[in-house]
Simulated assay, not measured.
Amino acid sequence: MREVAAHLSFGFRHSLRSVVRELVGARGSMDRMADRVARREARGMSREEMASALREHAQHPWTPPVGGVAAALGHDVVHGLDITIPLGLDRRVPQDRLRVVLGTASPMSARFFGAKLGGVRLRAEDLEWSYGSGSEVTGAAQDLVAVLFGRKVPPGRLRGEAAGRFTSA
């Protein structure tokens, strides 16, 4: 959780120059850079400092290099789920935000996030949305956001023959 919190605040705590320097040090791999920086900063920041960094920048207009505001929202929603799902917190992401994030689903984004969605149709039970074709997997929209971003959700939260592909042990 600490690493996710450090990662969430990275974009507004560091200058572009610092980000480029970190990226060069990671041999151009954004994933390697994000992982290394999050681990380092999670060790170096107290819980209070992390919470403060997130709180102070809640209205920051950060957007990732690609995807604009919808991608920034997706980043924050999925990383929020990365924290709340393992902790078993019953936080519900507002449906207007889920609609925006679900609207970004594409074969390219599924590949980018490592979501193996071949042969599956995802369908939300709590709002009108579906994606893909094949064996239907249904669940809460926020759980399907996690799936779209290559995450697994706890058992029992998805239904359908292929649901086990997307659940943690």
Rank of each mutant, 00 (worst) to 15 (best):
Met1Thr: 12
Met1Val: 09
Arg2Ile: 06
Glu3Val: 06
Glu3Thr: 15
Val4Tyr: 00
His7Met: 04
Leu8Ile: 09
Ser9Gln: 14
Phe10Ile: 06
Phe10Met: 10
Phe12Glu: 06
Arg13Asp: 02
Ser15Pro: 10
Arg17Ala: 10
Ser18Phe: 08
Val20Phe: 06
Arg21Ser: 13
Glu22Gln: 01
Leu23Lys: 03
Val24Asn: 04
Val24Pro: 04
Gly25Tyr: 03
Gly28Leu: 09
Asp31Val: 15
Asp31Ile: 13
Arg32Asn: 09
Met33Gly: 12
Met33Glu: 04
Ala34Cys: 13
Asp35Tyr: 06
Arg36Lys: 11
Arg39Met: 03
Arg39Gln: 15
Glu41Arg: 14
Glu41Ile: 08
Gly44Asp: 06
Met45Gln: 07
Met45Phe: 15
Ser46Val: 13
Arg47Gly: 08
Glu48Phe: 05
Glu49Phe: 03
Glu49Arg: 00
Glu49Met: 07
Met50Tyr: 02
Ala51Met: 13
Ala51Phe: 01
Ala51Asp: 14
Ala51Val: 09
Ala51Ile: 03
Ser52Asp: 12
Ala53Trp: 05
Leu54Trp: 11
Leu54Gln: 07
Gln59Tyr: 01
Gln59Gly: 09
His60Val: 07
His60Trp: 05
Pro61Lys: 00
Pro61Gln: 01
Pro61His: 00
Trp62Phe: 08
Thr63Cys: 12
Pro65Gly: 00
Val66Glu: 06
Gly67Ile: 08
Gly67Met: 11
Gly68Arg: 02
Gly68Ser: 00
Val69Ala: 05
Ala70Glu: 05
Ala70Pro: 11
Ala71Glu: 06
Leu73Asp: 00
Gly74Arg: 04
His75Lys: 02
Val77Glu: 02
Val77Tyr: 08
Val78Trp: 04
Gly80Pro: 04
Gly80Arg: 01
Leu81Arg: 00
Thr84His: 00
Ile85Pro: 09
Pro86Met: 08
Arg91Ser: 01
Arg91Phe: 12
Arg92Asn: 11
Arg92Trp: 01
Arg92Met: 08
Val93Ala: 01
Val93Lys: 03
Val93Trp: 06
Gln95Glu: 15
Gln95Ala: 08
Asp96Met: 02
Val100Ile: 14
Leu102Tyr: 00
Gly103Met: 03
Gly103Cys: 11
Gly103Ile: 04
Ser106Ala: 07
Ser106Thr: 05
Pro107Val: 10
Gly114His: 09
Gly114Ser: 14
Lys116Trp: 13
Leu117Pro: 01
Leu117Ala: 13
Gly118Asn: 07
Gly119Thr: 15
Val120Arg: 00
Arg121Ala: 12
Arg123Asn: 07
Arg123Glu: 15
Arg123Asp: 14
Ala124Tyr: 04
Ala124His: 04
Asp126Arg: 03
Leu127Asp: 03
Glu128Gln: 10
Trp129Ala: 12
Gly132Gln: 05
Gly132Thr: 14
Gly134Ile: 09
Glu136Met: 07
Thr138Cys: 07
Thr138Glu: 10
Gly139Met: 12
Ala140Cys: 04
Ala141Leu: 10
Asp143Pro: 13
Leu144Trp: 11
Leu144Cys: 05
Leu144Met: 07
Val145Cys: 14
Ala146His: 11
Phe149Ser: 02
Gly150Cys: 07
Gly150Met: 10
Arg151Gly: 01
Arg151Asn: 05
Lys152Ile: 02
Lys152Tyr: 00
Pro154His: 06
Pro155Ala: 08
Leu158Gly: 11
Arg159Trp: 10
Gly160Gln: 13
Gly160Ala: 10
Ala162Ser: 13
Ala163Tyr: 14
Ala163His: 10
Thr167Asn: 06
Ser168Cys: 10
Ala169Phe: 10
